[in-house]
Design a protein around this nucleic acid. Structure first.
Lengths: 138, 138
DNA sequence: AGCGATTTGGTACTTTAGTATGAGGCTTAA
DNA sequence: TTAAGCCTCATACTAAAGTACCAAATCGCT
């Protein structure tokens, strides 16, 4: 944060300097208006590139994972509980482990898993996970 | 491609126009040098931002998937056949289906899968897939 | 209050998955 | 030519996973 402030302060100072230098050079007749404008243009072009690059890179790091498509979940009529179970399945948990995690019986998990397999049109839980990822549900 | 050429042609034309306009305004005394330079700076800043954004967005789309870490595979002593099986498991295939795909017996697949579970320190194939993805093996 | 969907759970059974162990064939390096 | 890996396959289990069917409790909504 401190760094950002310092950089911006230096930047603004440099810009003012550039302006003043431009005017001074023009008055004394050392350089033409074209060159001044070209320098200004080039410098600001560079500033635009650099600033934009940094902000975009930040976005890249913050949000690298594709988001979940909740519409698809509704479309497939997957209920809340089923989705919770699906997430647990994707983590590689067994039915028994999922049951313990959600404080349910293993029977209940089996019911939910079977339901999920139907809705995702899968034959096995591994396939269900794969399909779910393709559909951006996970 | 045609579009790009046209855009650049228009851009260059606009820039020249801006320069001439700046000089003309200065000579006739309508505006001051500060305003001209400010306009030039602003325009080029914008150009820098836009151009950079487009080029970065392209990169984003071209390379969104993380690559496979082959070193990790060797590190875990996963053999070629085992890796083939792992890939098939990740696709959600059953042992029998994998056997048919690779022209092997189901027994062989079971052997490979068991070996994979050991090497990946997993208890189930679903967990193996999850771990493999975490390690960037898949 | 009652309907419909969800959630939960059970039993009984079939199918896959996974373990343990052994063994033969093949390739490669010592 | 052994030894070490790897790949293949088999048998015999045990453990999960999955199916089919049923049923009670709950919750949201009208």
């Amino acid at each position: 944060m401190k760094k950002t402030v310092l950089v911006f302060a230096a930047l603004i100072f440099s810009i003012l300097l550039l302006f003043r230098l431009g005017e001074y050079s023009l008055i004394t007749g050392n350089v033409t208006i074209e060159i001044i404008m070209a320098v200004v243009a080039f410098v600001f072009f560079g500033i635009g590139v650099v600033l934009n690059k940094n902000s975009l890179q930040q976005k890249k790091e913050i949000q690298p994972q594709p988001k979940v498509d909740f519409n698809k979940i509704e479309e497939l009529e997957i209920t809340n509980r089923e989705y919770e179970v699906l997430q647990a399945v994707a983590k590689g948990l067994s039915n028994k482990e999922i049951a313990e995690k959600l404080f349910l019986s293993e029977s209940t998990i089996k019911t939910h898993v079977s339901s999920l397999l139907l809705k995702l049109n899968a034959k096995r839980r591994t396939q269900a996970v794969q399909i779910a990822k393709e559909l951006h549900i996970l």
